[in-house]
Design a binder for these strands. Structure first.
Lengths: 240, 240
DNA sequence: ATCATTAAACTGTCCTACAGTTTGATTGTA
DNA sequence: TACAATCAAACTGTAGGACAGTTTAATGAT
């Protein structure tokens, strides 16, 4: 006996529907943006009941593979890459209090360091111009009025996401997005945002971008790690 | 206008049920292992239809918060921490061919390096004894007959998981589990397993354990990274 | 032309009924 | 008494029908 047999269990029919559609999406037979047939038609195609189809669609929706809209021309639209399921699972770990801010920050520091290092190794002219464009955009939103701050934070997130894109690892990109979305709540709650802090943040980004531009992986990593560590220390201080 | 208002959309009722139960689980009002009321009772408690309850349960099941069994005394049991949703989302990225073996390996190398480093900093006597016990167990399964190899691989995974546990970051632990489960298919398919390779693997683990025991974070990190890199190189070679 | 109205195509919810699955109790048998 | 087979009960899984709610696009009035 070198093999382990799996217990023979008749597949639940909604699971069959899930598998079938998920495969079609992953193989590319259903492309991003395309709309699946209506529940009525699917019900006939799979020869099941509408309830079964709906349970299957709920599962696919949870997995971020489709998004469902009501009304005419509504239905299940195929979604492209989505970090949603990952973001959700991290969120649950946090709500269960298994994962704390320190855990998030440690994980983020590790990733941002690695990403910046890789980006410094792989970035081409176009990539660097993208980064610079984001920085210019961000600079425009540093102002005394808090009304522009939200925009700045968006640019900040975009900068980090672009670095991950340059590092060319979608797995890192998805995880970074998940961590960012979840850490954001803490950002707004525990950081004493001011024009000065915005400037500080901006300067850090410029430093990382410069290191990437000069193809200096070690510096890029160090600066990214320090950036994350600095802001986390600030938060931990205000957390008490 | 400093705030962004969200569009007023009446919450779908299955979503309400999901939120309610998820909150109860996360707050600890529903404890691990506990069984939720039957669909009939839930239907009455929430004053909805059974279909709605079932859609909600499908969502909770997808999120790894409950597992559902049929038959008497069946129903939805509250699950403890589960890396399932994370494993699933990684699996989807792979099936969509957005994430390759190289991506997985890079991510794994980063994590294993970091984890071993942290473990070397944080391990106490008990932790080190745990590691040694696993290694002893693993050694017993290195044999010429391939029948014991499956056991060895289990021990190998357990060793890495324990390191993550020692590093005290559940987020890293969950991600490592997700990557491991997904990379395993490649392991069996593209690695030329033999007694010699098993020994090689085993020796790497011993090296990491020794570095952790001697509280040598730098060495622990280096050895873990080399270990992952070595086996990945082997796979990449056989992938062509 | 532009705006309000309406019809159509969908998803969301509720109901009822019955089939399939698992467990624990009950009954029959050595 | 022990133990196996049988059965009933408590569940989830599936089917089908009805109607309410939502969104888009065509239609019509001004």
């Amino acid at each position: 006996m070198n093999v382990q047999f799996r217990k023979m269990k008749p597949l639940k029919s909604y699971q069959h529907v899930v598998d079938e559609i998920q495969t079609a999406i992953c193989e590319g037979n259903l492309k991003e943006g395309e709309t699946l047939p209506s529940e009525m038609k699917l019900k006939e195609m799979f020869d099941t009941s509408r309830g079964t189809i709906r349970e299957a669609l709920r599962v696919l929706e949870q997995r971020g593979l489709v998004s469902i809209r009501t009304g005419v021309n509504g239905g299940a639209r195929v979604q492209g890459a989505s970090a949603k399921p990952m973001t959700d699972s991290v969120a649950i770990l946090i709500r269960q209090q298994r994962v704390t801010l320190s855990h998030l920050a440690e994980f983020r520091k590790m990733m941002e360091g690695h990403i910046s290092e890789q980006a410094a190794k792989k970035a081409d002219m176009g990539d660097i111009q993208k980064l610079m464009a984001i920085l210019r955009d961000a600079a425009a939103h540093i102002q005394t009025k808090p009304s522009g701050w939200t925009e700045f934070h968006k640019m900040d997130a975009e900068f980090h996401r672009t670095l991950a894109e340059i590092a060319e690892n979608p797995l890192l990109e998805a995880n970074l997005t998940a961590v960012h979305s979840n850490i954001q709540i803490y950002f707004h709650q525990y950081l004493p945002w001011s024009e000065a802090l915005l400037h500080d943040n901006f300067k850090d980004l410029c430093g990382i971008a410069a290191a990437v531009e000069q193809r200096d992986p070690a510096t890029a990593r160090r600066m990214a790690e320090e950036h994350v560590a600095k802001f986390n220390a600030l938060m931990e201080k205000n957390l008490e």
